[in-house]
Design a protein around this nucleic acid. Structure first.
Length: 260
DNA sequence: TGGGTTGTTCGTAC
DNA sequence: CGTACGAACAACCC
């Protein structure tokens, strides 16, 4: 579930259910292997504390308080953060469980084990040290134009590079290129200012729509690429055909006609 | 059976 | 140094 809109959905769940309650326990789930999770000392740091806010930067979700500590969560390909109230059925196979006063629990699910959860002191410091670029929903149009337009790299590769702009992955970078009418292979420094402006506006609107709909395919418009993401399919916006190409080791889907 | 996947990281080549 | 690629990680789908 893991690009910016999905990370935001997870953040909001924490915000709605897990703030301002004292943490009574924090522990890895049963039989968890091959996964880096907080050790005993880090778990102890959480106990007795509260989360007073939940933040997001790119695909990362944070929860903590001004004086710390914080949890930092990367959802990987299949990670989810699920709050459950006392008495509600807990999810299966939780990798990490935080229990709050009153019985609410926050479950970290991570089936494919490509995500992680860590205990950290400060999100801003963590984000800077990891070298993340600005969040895709916080970046200015000027910053965006510089990031994408100042390189001969293919725009899709630039959009997916978390060190340039944080939050966009394979799926939504394709969607953004598709909606902008720009080929994912287009060199950034050959885009006009107008094209860069279109991409920026499209990115902001698209991400907002995804957050509002919970990225639910059934609620998204029929002329979005996500509804036609298959090689050889007719393009829903022109007479073209959906084609594919590997970019940055990932399969990119795009229209062979209206994306230039 | 082989190949693909909405995630990142690492080694390697240019 | 920046860029690009394939493999690896892991579980599941077709």
């Amino acid at each position: 579930m893991p690009e910016l809109p999905e990370a935001e959905a997870n953040r909001r769940r924490i915000e709605a259910k897990c703030l301002n309650r004292t943490i009574e326990d924090a522990t890895p789930g049963a039989n968890v292997t091959h996964l880096e999770l907080p050790g005993g000392n880090e778990c102890k740091r959480l106990i007795g504390r509260q989360f007073s806010e939940a933040r997001r930067h790119g695909k990362l979700v944070f929860a903590g308080s001004r004086s710390g500590p914080w949890i930092a969560v990367h959802l990987g390909m299949t990670g989810r953060l699920i709050p459950r109230q006392e008495g509600e059925e807990p999810p299966d196979d939780a990798k990490f469980i935080i229990t709050f006063e009153g019985g609410t629990r926050l479950y970290f699910l991570n089936k494919r084990k490509l995500g992680w959860l860590r205990v950290i002191d400060d999100p801003d410091e963590f984000i800077a040290r990891q070298g993340y670029g600005p969040d895709a929903l916080a970046v200015s149009q000027e910053q965006f134009a510089t990031i994408v337009g100042d390189t001969g790299s293919m725009v899709k590769a630039r959009l997916m590079d978390q060190k340039q702009v944080a939050g966009i992955g394979n799926l939504w970078s394709d969607e953004l290129c598709f909606a902008s009418g720009i080929a994912p292979t287009h060199p950034g420094d050959e885009l006009s200012q107008k094209q860069l402006g279109t991409m920026f506006d499209t990115m902001c609107e698209g991400l907002e729509t995804l957050i509002e709909t919970g990225s639910d395919r059934a609620k998204l418009p029929d002329d979005w690429l996500i509804q036609h993401r298959k090689k050889g399919t007719d393009c829903p916006r022109c007479k073209g055909t959906i084609t594919t190409r590997k970019i940055g080791s990932r399969t990119s889907y795009f229209c062979d006609t209206h994306q230039k």
